[in-house]
Amino acid sequence: MEVTIRARTNLHLLMAKSRTLRYRTRLVGLLMITPGLAMIVSLLFYPLFHSLVISLYDLNIRAPWLGPRFVGLWNYLQALSSPDVQAAAGRSLYLAAVGIGLGIPLSMAFALILNRPFPLRGLVRGLLIVPWILPGTVQGLLWSRIYDPHYGALNGVLYQLGIIRDYIPWLLDPQRALLLVALANTWATVPMMTLLYLAGLQSIPEEIYEAAQVDGAGWWARFRHITLPLLMPITLINLILKTIDALTLFDLVYVLTGGGPANATQVIGYYLYDAAFQRLEYGYASALAWLIALTAVGLTVLYSRITRPGEARL
């Protein structure tokens, strides 16, 4: 790793050598991001701008006689102070916390397991993607068949193993319902996180491990001092991935619990859909959407700060 750091400083020195080179590098960099940037700007600039503008208006399209009324930041304040929004955002963050707290260690372990050779490795790794590709509606229906109070697999297994004596309506208890939703969601995201970790593991040069082994480092020391720090950039990606997923989750909840019992699983994605398409409060929904986006980016910055030490060591 020291080698790497030195190499990077060397490169910077090399670039600093002449100003023209530096200028040219900037230009090249700009040129390289242009296609992507152009695409995003041309397709999304207007919708984003539009939603930003209407987030400043009281606009409920089913009541045209009220008309769009400029209200400044009122929608934002209303969303921030609404107990429903706070509760829904809290639930989404809970989903993210479960997905991260459980998902990161689990997916890292899975990646370590699947990174070693074993028969049918390609097949098992290929299967990894299936939970993630199941459409949200199918996932929702699948889990509703698993948690079903009458014909569910979970009740069936636990009953036949003698763990429960009576079938349990799993989604009836508010706290348990939210946890079960989080677990169902984690099942779908862990495989994706595992895949990203696997790719990360594959790009760690074998020599580093060999050197460490010669130095007498045990399994845990190697994991702690090589694997974990080198996977930090991937961990960052996974943190962001899971957070976006939790903040935008909608169809799984919609199909599985409908946000119930009594709003106990109403996540922010669900609340937003409701505001936009059921209640038609577009101004308010747009403000909420921007708040969600800002939260997500805020968390991303936070995650970057936390994971930076690992990146710096590279």
Partner: peptide
């Protein structure tokens, strides 16, 4: 009425309960 009714959604579920003899 089964308290689990509070977790059931869809006429399909109601129909299933009937079809299962419950």
């Amino acid at each position: 009425i089964d308290p689990a009714a509070l977790t059931l959604r869809g006429g399909g579920k109601r129909r299933d309960v009937m079809l299962a003899g419950q």
